[in-house]
Nucleic acid binder design. Structure first.
Ligand code: MN
Ligand code: MN
Ligand code: ZN
Ligand code: ZN
Lengths: 142, 142
DNA sequence: ACTTGACTTAGACCTTGTCCATTGTAGGAT
DNA sequence: ATCCTACAATGGACAAGGTCTAAGTCAAGT
């Protein structure tokens, strides 16, 4: 993640304790936190950080292309630091757990011209849904 | 759509003017309205229908499997009466227009076991994004 | 026609997210 | 080392989408 901070400084980003903390919270694999989750975790490290700053910083990271917005459920947006490797998502329908996945195939090629309604199609987003091992175990035991 | 109303009555649904109007508003192809859009249109036919009733009725239609919730943008949920023919969506990134599409291929088969993290994967949702003919024309002219 | 439980209503309330005026500060200039 | 100032942070108001409740209404079985 210091990679990220270096790159941002290079882009003229003013480095502040708040921004550092947000970047730290977003470190890791399969991380897809809501803005409020980012805020809760940031508060542990920097008690006075405000909600507005978290939203601002996430918004900037998104515009800079360093973080992705993901909308897997129909509630809050989630923020995904894995922006440099294209991927899709696998979501547990019960607990909401989200994994990054890299399916084979080319879904764009699977959309015939007759199904394009004259659109210029540039992008496709795939969301797999199922039940995670954890939830499966809990349900069968109960 | 009277098919739908018959089926619902058969399931013990009490038939009211409000429910009839909501069902009417949701008739047609490529229909993906937000709850508030449903409400505005319903009000034209039945001026005193309330927002709460629209939300209640949509929620019931979703539980009954007669209407789908679609979250193509990150704002309001959209309600889709085309629940009996599985399909995916093609969305205009500029104006938000949504078309129902039926791609070939089998995205489920494209997710290798090594990318399933022990999940039982049961469903996949594909969203294509692009620019609709209308928006393309407007942009090139301007 | 009567009865009753399901349905509808208005509005309070919640969550997520944005906006703004004010206060604070990072980092270059001296 | 200190000063300066443009940029950043803050808290609170605001807005949109959505949920919940208490009270009134009505569809439909008898
Ligand atoms: Mn991801
Ligand atoms: Mn549809
Ligand atoms: Zn789970
Ligand atoms: Zn368009």
């Amino acid at each position: 993640m210091s990679d990220l901070l270096e790159r941002l400084r290079g882009r003229g980003w003013r480095m502040t304790a708040q921004r550092r903390v947000v970047a730290e919270v977003l470190d890791g694999d399969h991380v897809h936190l809501t803005a409020d989750e980012v805020h809760s975790r940031a508060v542990v490290k920097l008690p006075e950080i405000s909600r507005a700053t978290v939203y601002n910083t996430l918004g900037e990271l998104v515009s800079l292309g360093e973080v992705l917005e993901v909308a897997t459920d129909k509630r809050a947006k989630r923020y995904d630091p894995n922006a440099h490797r294209p991927h899709h998502h696998l979501v547990c329908a019960q607990c909401g757990a989200i994994k990054d996945v890299h399916p084979g195939g080319n879904p764009l090629a699977d959309l015939p011209d007759s199904e394009r309604f004259g659109f210029t199609v540039s992008d496709v987003e795939v969301t797999y849904r199922g039940v995670c091992p954890n939830c499966a175990a809990t349900t069968t035991t109960a």
